[in-house]
Design a binder for these strands. Sequence first.
DNA 1: ATCTCAAATGGTAACGATTCCACAGAGTAG
DNA 2: CTACTCTGTGGAATCGTTACCATTTGAGAT
Lengths: 345, 345
Amino acid sequence: MHKSHPHPTLAEVARKARVGTTTVSRVINGGERVSPDTLKRVQAVIDQLGYMPNQAARVLKGERAKTIGMVIPSIADPFFASCAEAAQAIARAHDSLLMVTVTNNDPRTEMENLNILTRHRTDGLLLAPANYQNQPLAESLHRMGIPVVTFDRLIVNSGIPSVLADNFNGARIATEHLISHGYSRILCLGGEPTLYTLRERLRGYRLAMQHKGLVPLVDMSVKDYKSAESAIENLLATGKPPDAIFTLKNSTTIYAFETLQKFKVPIPKSIALLGYDDFELASALRPAISVIQQPVEDIGRVAAEILFENLLSVGKGKNHEIKKRQYPIKLETKLVLRQSCGCRL
Amino acid sequence: MHKSHPHPTLAEVARKARVGTTTVSRVINGGERVSPDTLKRVQAVIDQLGYMPNQAARVLKGERAKTIGMVIPSIADPFFASCAEAAQAIARAHDSLLMVTVTNNDPRTEMENLNILTRHRTDGLLLAPANYQNQPLAESLHRMGIPVVTFDRLIVNSGIPSVLADNFNGARIATEHLISHGYSRILCLGGEPTLYTLRERLRGYRLAMQHKGLVPLVDMSVKDYKSAESAIENLLATGKPPDAIFTLKNSTTIYAFETLQKFKVPIPKSIALLGYDDFELASALRPAISVIQQPVEDIGRVAAEILFENLLSVGKGKNHEIKKRQYPIKLETKLVLRQSCGCRL
DNA sequence: ATCTCAAATGGTAACGATTCCACAGAGTAG
DNA sequence: CTACTCTGTGGAATCGTTACCATTTGAGAT
């Protein structure tokens, strides 16, 4: 019969090397206070047996778990995939693993994921919350002293550190740019109005419009290609169709683009298009799509950096300076001008 | 001072509920053999303290870790992002977490990642190996009885279960389709010839060409936009430019498309284009790009399913039937006809 | 020769859960 | 009335590692 635990243990190494467990422990932790002779012998046994320390035992002993948890709506979404990639890199630099869970923006699933991650005693949590109003478990963990950082989105009044793109400003700048082209009937298209980011962008759009005395034209019901199609079709049928469309998110931009192409509406001649969030092929489309570009990798990277900053400061004694920061950290967005807004005809 | 471990323990629950630790353990594991009275009392204390079992302690006691490791070249790559998403879903269905690590196709980093994951005693490993020739650590883990499944790519002669798309056949079908359009000077463009998948696709292309008596025209040096541009520019300058291009991977397809557009070569009139691997905007480009479509989610899903199948069969006693399978499992690809190959002009 | 000190080493108690075993008390069949 | 079984319960060993403390040894100082 086979042993159920195929991995050799520290005790086995000790026995085989004819030393105590303490000595082996010292060897695998840097070899201080061990004679060169013993060190070589123990190391040889370790290599021979292929010994690898059991992280679970270390965690039980009180060490950090060397894992961080990430809770995101989807991995397949390029935005969150990039965040995850950046966070993984930071985690790896801290000798830690990243556990990724997905929520599909369902608060219930989000809660379950946080629960499971907590059972596993991850050192910290990166969370893109589905709901900006609250997340009881995340807040409670934060109060218990477990480092939590929210990113891309915010939980208001939670006191949890967060890293965001400046959605409000990005949308404001985008709208102002369209206005500066002379467009006045600017339609704002989006979906999922419950998301923090989209609300912020909508706010930016509204402010820019009102500031110039223009009337906001909003349709937040665009969920898929079909709804985009019917929304745009309806507007084209009216006497006064919009002269520009500002889309609040990636997928909406693509739906709008394809719909306009389908109805053979020339972009930007009849209707200009400007989207929030860049995507790989935005410049390969004809016309190339102008967009607001978010610092995608930075969001994931900075969030993870702050997480480690916080979790490393735990237990460092009172004289350890925790860098005082102002949250939320807002990262700047960039207006990338291509053809669809009318800039380079 | 604050306790370094902020989480309440089972013993604390037991003390507060005035029962033994055994009873609390029974409560959190289904409540069998506990009187309704005690059950309620213990449950109340658990809720009140917000107790959550410490997974590390359970693992040490011999339970499964409820984590699986995934080792992929990149998370930001949509192909692997989809695999990861699918695998995460399967993991979650088995009450497990997915630990994702990235290698950038560097065998050294891959080895390190496998090492770290092993320290964490993950229940199993999903691996898209950088090198098809061997991966000593993965093979050794597999021999030790730790479930490993490779996906998308193969390690030859390793005996490790694997799940792949049928790259050879996909490329053969693609090439045959171009030939059926009447093209004869079909250029095959790709990069990173060390990857298993690309080698298989190249093999399929070669076979299809030779089968029809056509001479293969291959350039595997396309690493980025610049190299694609110069490769195509050179060919256009020759007296006999290709009449079709078959690209072996996603990024190459996009490079080729953009280069052809830049040189104002009409697609498919002068040069047709067919790419391996679909991408979200392939149908939004003009012309829309014809592609070989891989069952992306299926690859990740099936790989994860087989992993759990294998790891659940461990310790199930000899009478437990392990479904006997033939590896590698090859999943079928699909030819998606759009405009760029000349099908729908 | 004796004392002191540092280096090298090992025994053992934790850490937080599970689980084997023991045991008390109640019901019940003979 | 005895001999069971069955339910409800808890004590204590255990998993693999670390860390506190004790012990041994040899070198150098007095």
